[in-house]
């Protein structure tokens, strides 16, 4: 978590464009939130009915940990939308980005319940301490 689901019209993005978009999503999320890149997932589907495109060519539904500010969520959404234009060559009006939130305590990743936003350092330190071998 976060999880970014990208749904495109069939053939709209080639593999290189998907790689560029995934990199941009990861960079944007980490820059805005300070989260670790290793937790950022970006997944692409083509013409999936599960994430309806409606009249768009490319839509992104991001699910992030609850607790980010409205300003952060808006910045993530607008930055990703701009990245879709620059990385995938899709016109802005044919893109859509939606950000949803889920409580960190509802998610387990890396074998541990996810930390609340802003508590990553303490969480990582606790993980490292648990894994430290006896000397």
């Amino acid at each position: 978590m976060p999880l970014y689901i990208c749904n495109t019209r069939a053939g709209a993005l080639d593999g290189a464009a998907k790689t560029r978009v995934a990199q941009a999503i990861t960079d944007i999320h980490c820059q805005v939130t300070g989260a670790l890149a290793s937790f950022v997932h970006a997944i692409f589907f083509e013409a999936s009915s599960r994430w309806p495109l409606e009249d768009k060519t490319l839509s992104v539904q991001g699910t992030i940990r609850r607790g980010r500010s409205e300003q952060q969520r808006e910045l993530i959404a607008t930055s990703i939308q701009q990245a879709l234009v620059s990385c995938a060559g899709v016109e802005l009006e044919h893109t859509e980005v939606e950000i949803r939130e889920t409580p960190a305590s509802w998610v387990l990743e890396g074998g541990e319940i996810m930390p609340e936003p802003g508590a990553e350092d303490a969480w990582l330190a606790a993980q490292a301490a648990r894994r430290r071998p006896y000397v």
């Binding site: 950022v40 970006a42 692409f44």
Partner: peptide, 11 residues
């Protein structure tokens, strides 16, 4: 299933 090449973690 996510098609090979379509799933990314940390890019």
């Amino acid at each position: 299933p996510v098609t090979a090449g379509d799933g990314f973690t940390a890019a």
